[in-house]
Amino acid sequence: MAKVAIKTPQGDNLNPVDLHVGRRVAERRQALRYSQAQLAQAAGVTFQQIQKYERGSNRIAASRLWEIAEFLNVDLNYFFEGLGLPDGPEARMGGAPTKQTAEIARRAPELSVRNQKLVLDLIQQLARVSAETGAEIDV
């Protein structure tokens, strides 16, 4: 994987790996409905530091990532899933997961199995039409 820095409006060079890992930390934390302050307390840092980790502006040390993984109840590999794979989930979605995709995933278990299947069918239909036409569907 080629190392490419991303320029932010502030002029910072952010490493794509740090951005990806930070995004994954934020997604998991939000899925479990933990605040940044709760994660910070468990990791022994300030909530501001968690904000920097999640934005990718600060790197997470291996030992700290281990503590975060323990608190969020995930394997360390979770934070690196989809990284650097051209056919990974981010590539298939045309970018990083949004708050809406995380919310869909978080709320899906609240539905009955039948309704989960209906929602999945709807999403597949919308994706198919969008891929065929290259346009978004207005609702």
Rank of each mutant, 00 (worst) to 15 (best):
A2V: 05
K3C: 07
V4A: 15
V4M: 14
V4Y: 11
A5P: 11
I6S: 13
T8S: 11
P9L: 06
Q10T: 10
G11N: 07
N13E: 05
N15E: 13
P16D: 12
P16H: 10
D18P: 01
L19E: 10
L19G: 00
L19F: 08
H20F: 03
H20S: 05
V21E: 06
V21M: 04
G22W: 01
R24A: 10
R24D: 00
R29H: 06
R29V: 02
Q30D: 07
Q30E: 12
L32I: 02
R33H: 03
Q36I: 05
Q36W: 04
A37V: 14
Q38H: 02
L39V: 08
L39W: 13
A40V: 04
A40H: 04
Q41F: 01
A42T: 08
A43C: 15
G44T: 03
G44Y: 01
V45F: 12
F47N: 15
F47S: 13
F47W: 12
I50V: 12
E54L: 08
R55C: 00
S57V: 13
N58K: 09
N58M: 03
N58C: 00
R59Q: 03
R59L: 00
I60E: 12
A61G: 05
A62G: 10
S63G: 02
R64W: 04
R64I: 06
L65R: 09
W66R: 15
E67G: 02
E67V: 08
E67I: 09
E67Y: 07
I68A: 07
I68M: 09
I68G: 00
A69Q: 00
E70Q: 12
V74I: 13
L76N: 06
N77R: 11
N77P: 01
N77H: 05
Y78V: 03
Y78C: 06
F79S: 03
G82Q: 04
L83F: 09
G84A: 05
D87E: 09
G88E: 13
A91W: 03
A91V: 00
A91F: 05
R92M: 03
M93W: 08
M93G: 13
G94W: 05
A96D: 08
P97F: 08
P97K: 15
K99Y: 13
A102T: 13
E103I: 12
I104F: 04
I104V: 10
R106E: 11
R106N: 02
R106P: 09
R107D: 07
A108Y: 10
E110P: 03
E110Q: 14
E110I: 05
L111C: 04
S112R: 09
V113N: 10
V113S: 12
N115S: 09
N115Q: 14
Q116E: 00
K117P: 02
L118I: 06
V119A: 15
L120H: 04
L120N: 01
D121C: 11
L122F: 05
I123G: 01
I123C: 07
I123Y: 04
Q124M: 06
Q125N: 10
V129L: 15
T133W: 07
E136R: 14
E136C: 11
I137Y: 09
D138G: 10
V139L: 13
